[in-house]
Amino acid sequence: MIEFRDVHKFYDKLHVIRGIDLSITKGEVVVICGPSGSGKSTLIRLVNQLEILSRGDILVDGQSVASLRSRSLRQLRTQIGFVFQQFNLYPHLTAEQNITLALRKVLSITPKDATLRAVELLERVGLADKRQAYPAQLSGGQQQRVAIARTLAMRPKILLFDEPTSALDPEMIGEVLTVMRDLATSGITMLVVTHEMGFARELADLVVFIDQGVILENAKPSDFFLSPQHPRTRQFLRQLLSPLHTAND
């Protein structure tokens, strides 16, 4: 489904992704973790080409991402859902319009069908009563749930999450994780960058640990948490799981 082949990314001289090989099969839920600045966000942003590859290639459904331009790139992006850390809802549109806009303008779905889909998805994320609310009138957790609904509305084959709970107050993390848990068991392919180790332990098929642009550990959650191989992974887990650890980063 997604295959990273010797993927590299440079920002000028800064080498942030240094040769990543990774294979993800259909329906898998993969959690990517690592210290901040390790390149984990860059890695998933490369999948839908929000960042441009410097070297190597990523295959999505056997199709090379590096060679895609304009129209075919846009088409690929409609099939890959992306959930941002800062939600990035469109502030000038209501929750419902946030969901229907791309349906109508990119996928050319009729306004009526688009609205139906929006209503259905807002219900699914538990926000049926917030159709007419503007982003500024919603809490962080609600905004992120609308953002997830907006992503799902495009019926993507793959979902990418970039630290979806890191910008949230602690009491709102739960409601977003509930929605994500629901998705993880639905059989969709998911690539999740997160510090929520509970989510990883419970739902991931694979946990990938990245540091300084390289994969140090790639294992099933049971192995990852019980017998990590690399000393840096052990250190990372110790810090993250220690009670003195301060929330995110």
Binding site: L50, R71, R77, F84, A102, M154
Partner: peptide, 12 residues
């Protein structure tokens, strides 16, 4: 982030 969100949704 607004531009990125739009691009990620397939807007040109």
């Amino acid at each position: 982030g607004q531009r990125e969100a739009a691009l990620a949704q397939g807007f040109g």
